[in-house]
Structure formats: structure tokens, C-alpha cells
Design a protein around this nucleic acid. Structure first.
Lengths: 201, 201
DNA sequence: ATACGACTTGACCAACCAGTCAACAACCTC
DNA sequence: GAGGTTGTTGACTGGTTGGTCAAGTCGTAT
């Protein structure tokens, strides 16, 4: 039935890389097609618009990220250590990207969401959706940490939101300053925000 | 000598508003000229490129913001109250913009810096410069708070950086979620991050 | 083997993009 | 009021933008 084709996957990968490294607005459909080795006609066979590709890109990235988060934030892992592992993973991703592109690229979701947030409601909502998923991991780890007496347990939801806001800020700042410093401090700052003594690494 | 003209100021104001509300990439020189009521030829009489206008926009905004910060972060104001006033001002700005545009717009510097950070080094560096200025206000207030015994005084520089990262995250998140919530929580979260009991408002 | 739908191709479009330019108008100084 | 500088105008360019389309190609289920 289906004629086998890697075009769709190639387009998603190319778009993800180009938008992350540059920006949504400065990445043209032609750029994406060129990197993917796909003709523009095929692009519009798979995606009805550039915005729809961006959304597919987010979905694809989330599908790949979810099992990783499930592992890191597994209830088997000591609650505070989950954040340590998460911070380390984020640092590794950023270092890898930075080595590849010569720039600190920050969070692809954050950058994209901030760029088009006021203009493309579909993309904005999709980014917000993924953020909401992340928040659940933070909340769960914070509640577990509180129940083990590792941190103060009042208003876990507020702590989780604060943490997410901070993490998002770290990525944005790293990109703007073109400096991995904020990502390197992620681990320490998370523990500080949670009010934990930094010995759970 | 100089023929009086408001064109330059109009262009800066128009660019500031349009880029803040939308994005750098999606704001064309024609758009800016149209809103400013200025012909494109005049644009290029005052600015050598779109990027140079963006930089002039940042400079102009900073020149207007500096005396406000000097007042809020005056040594005359109790250290922790400075953050409270700052948070309130930020909320007022955001509410005003939101009412005007129908969207939570976040921090214009942050959004712009994140968008073009990997592509335009001049703009990126200019945004980073303004961030560095802000950091000094935070550091000073934190040191003052510590010397008054209001908060723990170990590693004020780290606390200031953490705070700035958080504040930046709050703006980005507010924009992406199209929700003033993160800005409304600014006051409380800042005090929590500083480890202060929330009674200095 | 044939037929059908999934995929590909390259040419095409109108709109828009940042930036240019030569001619012109208004102001200030002298 | 003459002259030089500063600001203004609108038409122009060459390239790029997101998106379209008709014609073709290929795999596969029957």
C-alpha cells in the first residue's frame, strides 16, 4: 500500500535541527528541504504548512524524550537524584549541540514558543502542552522528596512551577549569553531552590 | 543645523512595539515604517540596517529604564522591598501590554535575544550587556539584605544569578503560556529563592 | 500483469523581503 | 537670501518567501 519513504522523517529531523540552531522565522521551507534532501513538492505532500511541520517536530521530539524522562524520574531513583541526572543530561545535550554548531542553542521548545507564541496559537499551545508534561515529573519528584523528609513539603505545586520557570530561564539565558554557565549551575540551583542540602548527588 | 525630525524616535518606538508583540523575524522594515509613518528611504537615512535599528531600540529602552531601576533599587529602599517593587512594576508593564495586544508579551529583550542569539552577534551581545547591568542591581540588593541579616549571605553572586535566571524564565514562560501567572508569582518566588520569610512587602 | 494510491519532481506563482538611489524639500547659519 | 547640510520621497532592484500544481514514477495488493 504505502510506498516506503524516509522523506517525512528527514524533514522533521532537518527542521528540528535548523529551527533549534537558528530560529523558526529565519528557517525557510527551502532550507529544510535542502538539508533533508527532499523536493518542496514532497514537503507539501506530507505537511500542509511550515507551522504544521513545526508541530510534528515537537511531537516527534517529545515521543523520543518521554521514555528518557520516565527512566530518569522513575520512582526507583532517589527523588533528589532525579534532578541531578536530569541536569546532567541537559548539560550533555547542550554541550553536544554547542560543539556541533558553535553556539549554545538552549531549549528548542522554549525558543520556538517564545518566538511564535503571540503569532501562531497552534505552535504555542503545543509547546505549552509539552511543558505541562514536564511539570508532572517535577511535581512527582518533589512530592517524593518531601515524603522522604529530604525537603520541606509545603506547596509542592508552587515549588514545581518555580523549578520549571528556573530551568526554562537557564536555557534561555544560556542561549542569549552564548554560555553554558547557566546549564552547568542547573544542578546546584535546583537543589538550592528546593531548599535541599546539596549532598544527594 | 539639524532639521528637526521625529522620524528616528518614531521608528524606534514602532520597532520596539512590533518586535515585542510579534518577533524580530516576522517584523519587516515595511511594517515598522508603516507604523512609524515614515518612508523606507528615511529609515535607511537613520539606520544602516534592520539589525542596527534593533540595537538602537534596545539602547533607547535601557536609557528609559535605568532611572526607574535606580529609584526602585535605591539604597534608601529596604533591600527585600526593592524586589517587591520591581516585581510589581514588571506585572504592571505586562498587564498593560497584554490589555493592549491581547497577548502576554514577556520580556522584549529576552525574546529578541533568544530569537537571534545564534545568528546576530551584535544584537546578542547588546542584550547580554543589558542583562549584566540588571544583575548588578540584584547583587547589590542581595548583599544589602544579607548585611541586614534578612537572608543568608553566603555566595551572593550565585543567588543573584539564580534570581536573574528565574526572572528571565518567568517572562519567557508567561509569553509561551500566554498567562500572567508566572509574573504574578514573581514576588513570592523571588523571596523563596532568596530564602527570606515573605513579610517584607 | 494490472491497477491504484502513495510518493516524487521541477517548474511555477504572487507576494514580500531588505536595501538602494537620485532627485527633491526644508531648515539653519552666515 | 545664498548655500550647505539634513531630512524626505517614491520608484526601483534582485533575491527569497510560503505555497501550488500537473505530470510523472514507483511499490504493492490483488
Amino acid at each position: 500500500m504505502a510506498r516506503p519513504s524516509q522523506a517525512k522523517e528527514n524533514l522533521i529531523k532537518a527542521a528540528y535541527d535548523l529551527i533549534w540552531e537558528n530560529s523558526y522565522g529565519s528557517t525557510s521551507v527551502d532550507d529544510i528541504c535542502a538539508r533533508a534532501g527532499v523536493r518542496k513538492g514532497s514537503f507539501y505532500h506530507f505537511f500542509e504548512s511550515k507551522a504544521h511541520l513545526a508541530i510534528a517536530t515537537i511531537d516527534s521530539a517529545w515521543t523520543k524524550r518521554l521514555p528518557v524522562l520516565n527512566e530518569i524520574f522513575s520512582p526507583v531513583v532517589p527523588p533528589l537524584e532525579r534532578f541531578g541526572r536530569y541536569a546532567l543530561l541537559m548539560l550533555e545535550y547542550q554541550e553536544e549541540r554547542c560543539a556541533l554548531t558553535g553556539h549554545v542553542c538552549g531549549c528548542p521548545l522554549s525558543s520556538l514558543g517564545s518566538e511564535v507564541g503571540t503569532q501562531d496559537e497552534l505552535i504555542r499551545a503545543k509547546v505549552a502542552e509539552i511543558f505541562a508534561h514536564h511539570l508532572r515529573f517535577y511535581e512527582s519528584a518533589i512530592r517524593d522528596a518531601a515524603s522522604e523528609g529530604l525537603i520541606d513539603g509545603t506547596d509542592s505545586a508552587f515549588k514545581a512551577r518555580t523549578l520549571q520557570t528556573y530551568i526554562q530561564g537557564a536555557f534561555t539565558q544560556a542561549r542569549v549569553l552564548n554560555d553554558l554557565g547557566p546549564i552547568r549551575q542547573l544542578d546546584r540551583a535546583i537543589l538550592a531552590i528546593l531548599g535541599a542540602v546539596p549532598e544527594a548527588a
